Computed example of a mutant assay.
Amino acid sequence: MFKFRSGVAWRDVPDRYGSWRSLHTRFRRWAADGTFTRMLQAAQARADAAGDIGWLVSVDSTIVRAHQHAADVRKGGGGRSAARGAG
């Protein structure tokens, strides 16, 4: 976790955590086999059982980006896509 909290490269992780190669190998193995997912699920389950998680989620549509061609759509179907279909 030190690497991700500090943002350092794998080679710059302090020696007290072990060889950076071993740490990187273990990280990749755990990411691939689902260990991190299981750890997160277990932590969430414990926190949920203790009532420490509020599961209310709010999504603000202003953060949702439209497709790049959505800006061409005009009222009444006069955009580029309508012109292509008329040909």
Score class of each variant (00 low, 15 high):
77 G>L: 08
16 R>L: 03
53 I>E: 10
56 L>D: 11
40 L>V: 09
15 D>N: 02
17 Y>N: 06
46 R>S: 11
40 L>P: 00
61 S>L: 09
3 K>L: 07
54 G>W: 06
67 H>Y: 05
49 A>P: 02
15 D>L: 01
36 F>D: 07
29 R>V: 03
33 D>A: 04
34 G>E: 03
63 I>C: 02
11 R>V: 14
71 A>T: 12
67 H>P: 00
11 R>H: 10
32 A>N: 01
23 L>H: 05
8 V>G: 03
14 P>Y: 01
74 R>L: 15
40 L>W: 02
43 A>H: 12
68 Q>V: 11
60 D>T: 04
54 G>N: 13
52 D>H: 09
38 R>C: 06
3 K>W: 07
54 G>Q: 08
18 G>L: 08
76 G>Y: 05
76 G>L: 03
2 F>A: 08
45 A>L: 10
79 G>S: 10
53 I>Q: 01
65 R>G: 05
37 T>E: 14
72 D>I: 03
68 Q>T: 09
39 M>P: 02
72 D>L: 12
61 S>D: 11
82 A>E: 15
48 D>P: 00
10 W>K: 14
31 A>M: 04
39 M>D: 12
82 A>R: 09
36 F>S: 08
2 F>T: 08
39 M>Q: 11
15 D>G: 01
60 D>M: 00
78 G>A: 14
38 R>K: 08
81 S>F: 13
40 L>R: 12
41 Q>A: 14
58 S>T: 04
73 V>Y: 04
21 R>S: 15
35 T>Y: 09
19 S>Y: 07
38 R>Q: 13
58 S>N: 04
85 G>S: 11
37 T>S: 13
10 W>P: 02
41 Q>D: 15
42 A>E: 15
71 A>N: 06
23 L>Q: 14
11 R>L: 15
46 R>T: 14
15 D>F: 00
26 R>E: 14
3 K>A: 09
80 R>L: 12
51 G>H: 02
56 L>W: 10
62 T>L: 08
27 F>W: 14
27 F>T: 00
64 V>K: 07
